[in-house]
Simulated assay, not measured.
Amino acid sequence: MDQVDRRDPDWEGVRLHVVSGKGGTGKTTVAAALALALAADGGRTLLIEVEGRQGIAEMFGLAALPYEERRIATVSRSKLGLDGRGPVGELFALAIDTEQALLEYLDMFYKLGRAGKALQKVGFVDFATTIAPGVRDVLLTGKACEAARRKGPDGRRAYDAIVMDAPPTGRITRFLNVNSEVAGLARFGPIHGQAQAVMRVLRSPETAVHLVTLLEEMPVQETVDGVTELAEAQLPLGGVLVNMVRPPVLDAAAVDAVTGDHREEVALALGEAGLGGRSKSATTVRAAVEPLLDPLLDQAREHAERVELEREQRAVLQQLKRPTYELPLLGGGVDLGGLYRLAGELKRQGAA
């Protein structure tokens, strides 16, 4: 069997995986793939969505998820295309509804009961989370942290891992740094205590914040900025997940070669490949392949430029000195089969 299938995971001991990334990088897809990979050895993983987009439900072909944890998939190593047999793992999902989370919080700490429903009717919930967005973030992160700490009647953890599909990189530090966000609102009391409890989990060795990027200048720069901000906020850095990596079309020598004038060599190669038909006349062959030369050379140059750009962006990411994982670009979009393939790649590379 392939030795890479048995690589030890890089994040042993991490229970809460926070996944962020610039919009358009496939953050939700990567978060779902990571959750599947974490469950593949027979564990229970909870995938949490906090932005209200129902992206997880759409990805797994489900109706909109309610504000409750429910099982959405089973997974095993064989499903991910990996060697070895093992127990079947379970993937659960939760789409956090801010309004329901606040009512749950008010009932838990203030025993409001029916009064909480009345607040909902008069629009208090929207008002509270709009004027105090820090409270909203405490509720969202608090739910994930509670799930990470929760234990069953037997004393065992309810979940082996939690994966949070978090807000984009530009907002992730503020979203997670709830202590500073609520400092001006509550210096004591339940909200302050909740923020303190959340930060204890988020800054612990059991948490890692992973950033999703593409090999393009803007996403990579946003990743660099995100790493810097997270480090300054003393939030635990995870890995860098490079998504939608295109397979190489030309080798390094061919990429370097297309920068010159190679019309004659390309014309000869096309003729030898039979594109000129059966004619042995050089004039006839040249006439047949001539219309193909400029488009082919233009495409080769565009590919060379992209390869060079990707080289440069990889070099930038290497300077971050973070574990880095690459996921292939899947033609035609990501269906459920593709999601399992990406999960297998993460498992092979040691991300889970």
Results as ranks from 00 to 15, higher is better:
R6W: 06
D8M: 08
E12P: 10
E12G: 13
V14K: 13
R15V: 07
L16D: 01
H17E: 02
V19D: 00
G26K: 09
G26P: 02
A33P: 12
A40N: 05
D41W: 04
D41V: 04
G43C: 03
R44A: 04
T45V: 15
V50F: 06
Q54M: 13
L65E: 10
S76P: 08
R85G: 15
V88Y: 02
L91N: 00
A95Q: 14
Q120D: 15
K121C: 04
A128H: 01
G134W: 02
L140S: 08
K143T: 15
A144L: 08
R149Y: 00
I162M: 05
P168K: 02
G170H: 12
G193L: 10
V198D: 15
M199V: 06
R200I: 01
E206Q: 15
V209P: 10
L211N: 13
V212A: 09
L215M: 07
Q221V: 09
E222I: 08
V224F: 04
V227H: 02
E232S: 15
L235Q: 12
G238N: 05
G238M: 04
V245F: 04
L250K: 12
D251G: 14
A257W: 13
T259V: 11
A269E: 10
G271Q: 14
G274W: 13
G276E: 11
V289C: 13
L292N: 00
R301G: 02
H303P: 03
H303Q: 08
V307S: 10
T324E: 04
Y325N: 04
L330Q: 09
L330M: 08
G333W: 12
K347R: 15
K347Q: 07
R348W: 01
